[in-house]
C-alpha cells in the first residue's frame, strides 16, 4: 500500500512523463485520421493542426519535466483513499439500479469507511440527504432524474 518508497519515487519520475508523451503521440496519430479540408474551406488552419501543436507542446514540456523537474508523490496514499476510489467504483455499478440508491449507499458507506459509527449520522447521509436532494431538484429545479428502482415509484 505504501507508494512512498524510493523505488516507486524512481518509477513515478519517469512513468508520468512517459504516460504524457504516450498520450500525446496517440493523440497525434489519431489526428492523422481527421478529414483534410480543401484550401478554400480550411479557414486558416486544418482541423488537425491545433491539436498537433498542443500535443507537441505536451511532449516538449514532459521531456523538460523529466529532466529538470522530476515528479514526486506529494502525500502518502492511505488505505482510506483506495477505499474511497473503490466506493466510487461501487457507485458506478449501483447507478445501473437507481441513481439515488447509489448515492445513498455511497454516502453511507463512505461515512462508515471514514470512521462514522453513529446510526443517526449514517441514516442522515444515507437516507435523509438523498431524499432531500431528490425533492429539491425534482420539485425546485424541475430536474428529471434517470429512471430506476426508486425514481420509478415517483415518476410512475
Amino acid at each position: 500500500m505504501n507508494l512512498h518508497s524510493e523505488k516507486s519515487e524512481r518509477l513515478v519520475r519517469w512513468l508520468v512523463p512517459l504516460a504524457l508523451i504516450l498520450f500525446a503521440v496517440v493523440a497525434i496519430y489519431i489526428s492523422t485520421t481527421f478529414k483534410k479540408m480543401p484550401p478554400i474551406l480550411k479557414r486558416g488552419i486544418q482541423p488537425s493542426d491545433f491539436p498537433r501543436l498542443i500535443c507537441g507542446l505536451i511532449i516538449f514540456l514532459s521531456l523538460l519535466m523529466a529532466w529538470f523537474d522530476p515528479v514526486k508523490i506529494q502525500e502518502r496514499v492511505s488505505r482510506q483513499t483506495f477505499l474511497t476510489v473503490a466506493l466510487v467504483g461501487m457507485f458506478v455499478l449501483l447507478v445501473q439500479v437507481d441513481l439515488f440508491i447509489a448515492l445513498g449507499a455511497f454516502a453511507a458507506a463512505l461515512s462508515f469507511a471514514w470512521g462514522e459509527r453513529r446510526i443517526m449520522a449514517l441514516g442522515l447521509v444515507g437516507l435523509v440527504m438523498p431524499v432531500v436532494i431528490f425533492f429539491i431538484f425534482d420539485l425546485g429545479f424541475r430536474v428529471r432524474f434517470p429512471r430506476g428502482l426508486l425514481t420509478n415509484m415517483w415518476y410512475g
Binding site: 447507478v95 441513481l99 448515492l103 455511497f106 454516502a107 453511507a108 463512505l110 461515512s111 471514514w114 470512521g115 462514522e116 449520522a121 442522515l124 447521509v125 440527504m129 438523498p130 436532494i133 431538484f137 429545479f141 430536474v143 428529471r144 432524474f145 434517470p146
Partner: peptide, 25 residues
Amino acid sequence: IPTQILWPSVFMFSVVGAYALDQSM
C-alpha cells in the same frame, strides 16, 4: 460538521449538479 457527513454530502451535490446541467448521465 464532521468530515464523515460533510464530504459524502458534497459528493451527492457534485453528482446531482453534474447531471442537472444537461440531465445527462
